[in-house]
Simulated scan of single mutants.
Amino acid sequence: MAEEKYRKYRTGQGVPVEGEYICQSGKRAKLNIRDNFPVCPLSNKETTWTHE
């Protein structure tokens, strides 16, 4: 599970582990395991996310 903290996920991918994620713009989102990674809450465009 430690590698999950450093892995980057893209908009549209499935969330592998429930928790807080941070997008490229620095915005945080609490995501559940059944969610897909959303667009950036700031720009409304595709982004990458990392696990908090």
Score class of each variant (00 low, 15 high):
Glu3His: 08
Asn36Arg: 10
Met1Asp: 11
Glu52Pro: 04
Leu31Gly: 00
Gln24Tyr: 08
Glu3Ser: 07
Trp49Arg: 00
Arg7Asn: 09
Glu3Asn: 06
Ser43Leu: 11
Thr48Ile: 09
Gly19Ile: 03
Tyr9Met: 00
Val39Ala: 12
Tyr9Leu: 01
Thr11Ile: 01
Gly26Pro: 03
Gln24Met: 10
Leu31Ser: 00
Thr47His: 07
Gly14Thr: 14
Asn32Tyr: 15
Gln24Glu: 13
Lys5Gln: 09
Glu4Tyr: 09
Lys30Leu: 13
Thr11Asn: 00
Lys45Trp: 11
Ala29Trp: 13
Ser25Phe: 09
Tyr6Lys: 05
Gln13Ser: 04
Cys40Asn: 02
Tyr9Asp: 03
Asp35Pro: 00
Lys30Arg: 13
His51Cys: 11
Ile22Leu: 08
Glu20Ala: 05
Lys45Ile: 13
Cys23Gly: 00
Met1Val: 05
Glu46Arg: 11
Lys27Leu: 11
Glu20Pro: 00
Thr48His: 09
Lys30Pro: 05
Pro38Asn: 04
Met1Phe: 07
Gly26Thr: 08
Arg10Trp: 10
Glu46His: 06
Asn44Trp: 14
Ala2Thr: 12
Lys8Tyr: 09
Lys30Ile: 13
Gly19Phe: 11
Asn32Glu: 15
Arg34Thr: 10
Lys27His: 14
His51Arg: 15
Gly26Lys: 03
Tyr6Ala: 04
Arg7Val: 06
Glu3Val: 05
Gln24His: 09
Glu20Gly: 02
Arg28Tyr: 12
Arg7Ser: 08
Pro16Thr: 01
Gln13Gly: 02
His51Asp: 10
Lys5Arg: 09
Ala2Asp: 15
Gly14Met: 11
Leu31Lys: 00
Thr50Tyr: 14
Leu31Ala: 01
Lys30Asp: 12
Trp49Leu: 03
Tyr21Asp: 01
Glu46Val: 07
Pro16Phe: 07
Asn44Ile: 02
Gly19Leu: 06
Tyr9Phe: 12
Glu52Asp: 14
Gln13Trp: 08
Asp35Leu: 00
Pro16Arg: 00
Asn36Cys: 07
Leu31Cys: 02
Leu31Asn: 00
Arg7Ala: 08
Ile33Asn: 08
Arg28Ile: 13
Met1Trp: 11
Asn44Asp: 14
Phe37Asp: 05
Pro16Asp: 06
Ala29Pro: 06
His51Lys: 15
Gly12Leu: 05
Lys27Phe: 13
Gln24Phe: 08
Pro41Tyr: 13
Cys40Gly: 02
Glu46Phe: 06
Lys5Asp: 12
Glu18Ser: 07
Gly14Phe: 13
Lys27Cys: 11
Ser43Cys: 09
Glu4Cys: 06
Asn36Gly: 03
Arg7Gly: 03
Gly12Glu: 09
Asn44Glu: 15
Asn36Glu: 12
Asp35Val: 00
Ala2Phe: 11
Arg28Pro: 05
Pro16Leu: 02
Tyr9Glu: 01
Asp35Glu: 02
Arg10Pro: 03
Phe37Ala: 02
Ile33Lys: 15
Thr48Ala: 04
Tyr21His: 00
Gln13Leu: 05
Gln13Lys: 02
Ile22Glu: 14
Ala29Asn: 14
Ala2Cys: 07
Val39Asp: 12
Lys45Pro: 03
Gly19Thr: 01
Thr48Arg: 10
Leu31Arg: 01
Asn36Gln: 12
Asn36Asp: 11
Tyr21Met: 01
Gln13Val: 02
Leu31Met: 03
Asp35Phe: 02
Thr11Lys: 00
Phe37Leu: 04
Tyr21Ile: 01
